[in-house]
Amino acid sequence: MAITRVAPGIVRVERQPLTFSQRLYIPQILAGMMVTLGHLLKNLVNMKRMLIISYPEVKRVYSERFRGRHILTSREDGTTRCVACFMCSTACPAECITIEAGEDERTREKFPVRYDIDLLRCIFCGYCVDACPEDAIYMTRDYEMAIDTRARAVVGLRDLVVPPNFPVDPMGYRPYYGKIQKSGTAGGTGVGQPLRQAPFDDDTAPNPELYRGGNA
């Protein structure tokens, strides 16, 4: 492409008429074929580097922030970390979260009796994760959610809650604050959790930039 500068900050892309050899049509078709042939040969010689992902035998590894299906994490004693504060359902633009709260008689703590996410309504924006003050809801890297009945798209506590030692590190979109200690739990008022222990690796200096910027 020929480019002429017409003014500072403005360039004009010139229209180029076809030359005689280009008007002959065949040579340019061959030149184009050479490009495709080059690609073909490159792929034949180096089959392994072909850019195809043969799903489902090979699965693309999405980043650790991938926003897929949700899970509800548990405390170490096995209770759900969620305290039914309704933050996630308030922040949800799709209003796809339904919560009913109950109270634990022993600890006087709220917990969800019912926690339904309508996966079909959900737009996977991650606002519920951002809104959670209890580190309870995460999004996994699970994108294989196709189902054959609409009713089954509403997932409840039974499908959402994961056991306490669920490996969260390669998980998916989760509240972002630097690196999580693998064995530790991440804050909250959990029963059985050592109190006042710094929950995060990076949580040693009172530097707010560490969490929202810098080299997290």
């Binding site: 809104a131 003050p133 604050y177 991440a186 707010p208 930039e209 969490y211 929202r212 910027g213 810098g214």
Partner: peptide, 18 residues
């Protein structure tokens, strides 16, 4: 930081929320 430090606009960092 990547977001303004204004709690009336941006959610506070999670570590502080907890």
């Amino acid at each position: 930081p990547v977001i303004v430090d204004n709690p009336y606009v941006a959610l506070p960092p999670k570590s502080k929320v907890y």
